[in-house]
Amino acid sequence: MRLIALEEAFSIPRLSDRFPGLTDLGPIPVSPEFGRHVARRLPDFTELRLPEMDRYGVDVQVLSHTAPGLQAGLSAEDAVAAARFANDYLANVVAEHPARFAGFAALPMQDPPAAAAELRRAVEELGFRGALVNDHTGSRYLDDPGYERFWTTLEELDVPLYLHPGAPPAEQWQVTDGCAELIGPTFTWGAQTGGHALRLLYSGVFDRHPGARLILGHMGEYLPFMLSRLDSRYATLAPGRTLDRAPSAYVGTNILITLSGVQSPAALAGAILAIGADAILFAIDYPYEFTGPATTAFAGAALSDADRHKIAHGNAERLLKLRPWTESA
Rank of each mutant, 00 (worst) to 15 (best):
A116Y: 03
G240H: 14
L3S: 08
A131C: 14
A212T: 10
L259A: 11
S11W: 02
S328R: 15
I12C: 15
G178M: 04
S64E: 15
A267N: 03
A302P: 09
T186L: 11
L259Y: 04
A297K: 09
D144Y: 00
H196M: 10
L107P: 04
V123M: 09
G184E: 00
G276K: 08
T295K: 01
E124I: 07
H196K: 06
R241M: 12
G240S: 03
L142N: 10
P68Y: 05
A180L: 13
A283V: 08
T23W: 03
P68C: 11
Y162S: 13
T295R: 06
V62I: 15
P112R: 05
L154M: 12
Y147H: 07
A76H: 04
L6K: 03
G146F: 10
S228R: 14
L70S: 05
G314S: 05
A102D: 05
L50Q: 01
E327Y: 07
R18V: 06
L142R: 02
A180K: 11
E156W: 04
E317T: 12
F298H: 09
P68S: 12
D143H: 10
D177E: 14
T291G: 12
P108S: 11
Q71P: 01
D244I: 03
V123D: 04
V262Y: 05
G73T: 04
L268W: 01
P108T: 09
F206W: 12
A5N: 09
G166E: 02
V30D: 14
T152Y: 02
L161W: 05
T291M: 07
S139Q: 15
D24S: 13
P51R: 00
L201I: 14
E317N: 11
H218G: 03
H313P: 06
L163M: 07
A72P: 02
G220S: 07
R14I: 06
G103N: 08
D158V: 15
P165G: 01
V175L: 14
C179E: 06
Y286I: 08
T46N: 09
L216I: 14
L15H: 06
P112H: 02
G217H: 12
A67H: 11
A238K: 15
